[in-house]
């Protein structure tokens, strides 16, 4: 039942015009920025404007697309009565959520693979681009974390429009508002307090968590500055890697569990 649902959901998602447009848009923007930066600037090790662009394109675009499409997919099921039909099948709530989640993850991994393939092909034609392994891994993590959040948003939303607005709010909160709030607080509190608040935000904001992970695993933690020496040193150790894995796992599972709870509360399935 699970694989049937996965196939069905994946088919629906890939058929969606919106998904196809998003795939094209992401591929176009991603390829354009990466290739232009690669052509314009020399290839050097370390954190440069080029790697910053890589990271920002990824953190800006991918969460936005995943959150909107993923959440609307779940909300749309409820709104359109698709759930009522699914209820007639021998399927648990958890199976529905996992199927939905897996379909979203698979669809976006396909989008990302198309984008990476295009970058490699065009970059190869123009002399060669580098796609570091850390960056690829981070992209996959981005997909699995934000797909989980998208399912949770969809479960909480009443309608597709509501899911869309919730996704946009959450996206801007994670990507922009939380950072701005922290920067604003920093103007009135002491540096050591701002440092502690930032460490908390790193853990409660998946976008920051992924960005932080990039610096840790690409061995460029010094970019974050001496104030974060203790934190980066911890996360650069083996125990730190394990903790990073655990926190990432929680970011994937907790939204899915909360989605399950919410659907149960609403009496779906």
């Amino acid at each position: 039942m699970n694989s049937m649902l996965l196939k069905l959901e994946l088919k629906q998602m890939l058929r969606s015009r919106w998904m196809q447009l998003v795939g094209m848009l992401f591929t176009f923007i991603f390829t354009a920025i990466i290739v232009i930066q690669q052509m314009a600037l020399p290839d050097v090790e370390g954190f440069t404007r080029q790697t910053a662009s890589f990271l920002n394109v990824l953190l800006f675009l991918l969460p936005l697309f995943i959150l909107t499409i993923g959440s609307m997919s779940v909300a749309g099921d409820i709104e359109s009565g698709w759930f009522s039909l699914l209820k007639t099948y021998p399927m648990t709530r958890a199976q529905y959520i996992v199927g939905k989640y897996m379909a979203t993850v698979c669809a976006f991994i396909l989008v990302v693979v198309v984008a990476f393939g295009t970058v490699l092909a065009l970059g190869g034609f123009l002399g060669g681009v580098r796609l570091p392994l850390v960056f690829i891994t981070l992209t996959l993590l981005c997909v699995v974390i934000f797909a989980s959040l998208a399912i949770a948003i969809g479960a909480f939303a009443q309608t597709r429009l509501f899911a869309l607005s919730q996704s946009l709010v959450l996206w801007s909160f994670f990507l922009l508002l939380l950072s701005y709030a922290l920067m604003a607080i920093g103007t009135v509190v002491a540096g050591h307090i701002l440092q502690k608040l930032t460490v908390i935000v790193i853990h409660i904001n998946p976008a920051e968590w992924l960005r932080f992970g990039y610096f840790i695993f690409s061995d460029q933690a010094s970019v974050l500055g001496p104030a974060f020496y203790g934190v980066t040193r911890f996360y650069s150790s083996y125990i730190g890697y394990v903790v990073y894995g655990i926190v990432t796992f929680l970011w994937i599972t907790l939204p899915l569990l909360s989605a399950n709870k919410q659907l149960q509360k609403r009496g779906v399935c």
Partner: peptide, 9 residues
Amino acid sequence: VYQYFVASP
């Protein structure tokens, strides 16, 4: 401490 945010979105 603000260096943490360098080149962030």
